[in-house]
Design a binder for these strands. Structure first.
Length: 113
DNA sequence: CGTCTGACTAGTA
DNA sequence: TTACTAGCCAGAC
């Protein structure tokens, strides 16, 4: 079993684990938060090789345009996201509402424009 | 070494 | 909206 994980991978896993339930983040966003800007593919690779023992919310990672990653568990990903209250329609989520950049709560409860 | 692949992204048409 | 491009970079061969 793999014991030594690259520091970059560990930071990526940490960034993924930091995503709150009901929110989603893109691969690029994860990479940036891990101190690896512009390396979205690395985030994807890291996630595809998540070692056992890392119980990460992988379903909260989507592509930059909101579409779910074209992978084996796309359906499972949609199911888990919906279970967290994320609106998934036709294989994509609304980044505007669930992305980390946007604070939905503030929009609802704030003073508006 | 070179080449291909991929859970990616931003830009252009 | 989709399709294609260049840029990206770690593994596998």
């Amino acid at each position: 079993m793999k014991d030594w994980i690259k520091p970059e991978y560990r930071r990526i896993y940490a960034a993924v684990a930091a995503i709150p339930p009901g929110r989603v983040a893109s691969y690029g966003e994860i990479a940036a938060r891990a101190g690896l800007p512009g390396r979205a593919r690395l985030a994807g690779r890291a996630l595809s090789e998540t070692p056992k023992g890392f119980d990460l919310p992988w379903h909260r990672i989507v592509r930059a345009d909101g579409r779910l990653a074209c992978m084996r568990g796309q359906r499972e990903q949609a199911r888990r996201l919906r279970a967290e209250g994320v609106d998934v329609r036709n294989g994509r989520v609304r980044i505007i509402a669930h992305g980390l950049h946007h604070d939905l709560d503030r929009e609802i409860w704030g003073s508006g424009c």
